[in-house]
Nucleic acid binder design. Structure first.
Lengths: 152, 152
DNA sequence: CGCTTGCTTGGAGCGCACTCCAAGGTCCTA
DNA sequence: TAGGACCTTGGAGTGCGCTCCAAGCAAGCG
């Protein structure tokens, strides 16, 4: 069964066109990752504390050395954050990934549920857009009315 | 100038197909409004405290009696909330409405900026959707691989 | 009359997602 | 070898948007 899981670390994110170290030298300090992701170093450490990150390599003196796969994971986390998914749910997903291949089904279900949430949120936003456009038209008309009032 | 502002209370929300009292009798208790909007009575009182609501009528004993125009306003607030607009910004908008007709321009600008935000958020969500779909495909493929593994 | 239900107020408390602090160790450059 | 920038930790603090509490008033019912 293990041979079916060459991508078992869940790094199916596809090519990231981000600054990366040349081959093999993918070790970033926390402040480099902060610059690359837009998160603060505080937040990166906090993500680790709450179990949202996989194990992060350390230098011989204990400093974090992030790898490209960690950046990929942070990309995904950033996307999920945009959907409004609570951090606790992302931690749940991270736990499933750590737990191994037997959680594929559960991860799949979680992703599909999230997909539905995103579709619903897009629909909500489009409804809001409609309301906003009606109000904007109203104010545009009111502006024209005031203008013609003034010119009279 | 005032005759151009028959809709100056900003109630341009259009027809609301919600339960309403028959003509003229539009006085709702706080718990009725809570049921209609999905907000709690606590939240409705809090909205009032922070200046997010217009003045709400009171019964002879001091109890709140909401009117249809208040429900319309709460509809708008609900929509804006869906966009992620901070409550403080909505309060700002409410203040502009209370301040009178000379704030039309500012309200117009605020609405247009909000519209742009909504479009940006929709685009973000669609980007997230793309990532999600790629991962979902990955898991579907992995599922199929495992299934064929088992049947072999 | 007592009882229940619903409303009033100011203020305190909560959950989330960070955000920062203090005290100390390490790395780099001159 | 000194100085400053950067890193480490556990724990405390912050801002937002509610959410709830205590104490009390008013209305309706048997």
């Amino acid at each position: 069964m293990t041979e079916t899981t060459s991508a078992s670390t869940d790094t199916c994110a596809g090519p990231r066109p981000r600054d990366r170290r040349p081959d093999g030298e993918d070790r970033y300090t926390i402040s480099e990752v902060a610059a690359l992701t837009g998160l603060t170093a505080h937040t990166l450490r906090w993500y680790e504390r709450i179990g949202l990150m996989p194990h992060i390599d350390r230098s011989h003196t204990g400093q974090r050395r992030y790898r490209n796969r960690d950046l990929d994971w942070l990309d995904l986390v950033g996307k999920l954050r945009l959907t409004g998914m609570p951090v606790a749910d992302m931690v749940r997903y991270a736990e499933l990934v750590r737990a191994g291949d037997h959680t594929y089904g559960e991860r799949f279900a979680l992703l599909k549920a999230t997909r539905e949430d995103v579709l619903a949120r897009i629909a909500e936003l489009q409804g809001t857009l409609a309301v906003l456009d009606r109000k904007i038209d109203f104010y545009a008309d009111a502006g024209r009315a005031l203008a013609s009032e003034r010119s009279r």
